[in-house]
Design a protein around this nucleic acid. Structure first.
Ligand code: SF4
Ligand code: SF4
Lengths: 136, 136
DNA sequence: TATAAAAGGACAAAAATAGTCTTGAAGGTG
DNA sequence: CACCTTCAAGACTATTTTTGTCCTTTTATA
């Protein structure tokens, strides 16, 4: 329950791979997909999302590929997850007002708010740079 | 992302309704479903799960119905959620050993462990009794 | 121009979610 | 007992989400 999908998992693996590359090096999507063991076409979609948000920069044509759009230390795990999974949302009522007409009185609502803020806080405090450091 | 399904939401609403009833009163599934606005047959399945786990007790025949299986103060939100949604699991690798062969080295793994333990802690500290108290 | 690579969109298979329906079993009532 | 009430259980179905694939287009380089 309440779990990351494969897409999210793939996204994290992919961007960590990029973060481990030497400064300025670009990687082909084929290379990344093979390295992190993800279907290439699927990972390509994910990286399109990244590129649109500026998390990675992309270049087409010969010598093209992907690299980080900013320093790994400035990219949080939360950003990466939210790009592909959407906002962290333990229950529907947290999205907009009017999504549940009970929200104004409901005693459960604040619990979900707390869950949301805690999870967001954890993921916000983890950067891709940390995740890319030498493995344990 | 990482959200409760309708089933979980329905489960919570249903058991809170029970908790608000006077001591010893039984409620028909038809009554509960109407009160909390959930398809009756769907809610019936949920309450079957509750009954199997002892969260509610059920009686058949005339005068039968459902009531809480123990005091509302002794039922946590976590239990209710997990009965219908399964264990709180931010990522696959948290289930068993061997579910991801990278888990031993992976730097992301501990982050999911932390998320899991935080969410569990929050939900464990909320009882159905609290949720059933007068609404805000 | 030919080649290399990502971008974008349409499509498809599989799985999970959100239900319904039918039958059976257990318990009360006259 | 015969009949009614209520939950239990399982099979079935519809919808949505996830997890991909494939093909065409655009951009860039040589
Ligand atoms: S938790 Fe309360 S506010 Fe949120 S969806 Fe359920 S009833 Fe509505
Ligand atoms: S977080 Fe690490 S351990 Fe968990 S699934 Fe992803 S790679 Fe495997």
């Amino acid at each position: 329950m309440m779990g990351l999908t494969r897409k999210g998992e793939y996204a994290i693996r992919g961007i960590i791979y990029l973060a481990r590359l030497p400064q300025g090096k670009v990687a082909l999507i084929s290379e990344i997909a093979a390295a992190v063991d993800v279907p290439q076409a699927f990972l390509a979609k994910i990286f399109q999302n990244f590129a649109k948000l500026g998390l990675v920069s992309s270049a087409r044509g010969t010598g093209g590929g992907f690299m980080l759009g900013r320093p790994a230390a400035k990219i949080t795990l939360r950003e990466v997850v939210e790009v592909v999974e959407g906002p962290i949302m333990p229950n529907r009522c947290l999205l907009g007002v009017g999504s549940c007409d009970r929200a104004a009185h409901c005693n459960v609502h604040p619990v979900w708010q707390k869950v949301q803020s805690q999870v967001v806080a954890i993921l916000d405090n983890v950067t891709i740079e940390e995740l890319a450091r030498e493995e344990r």
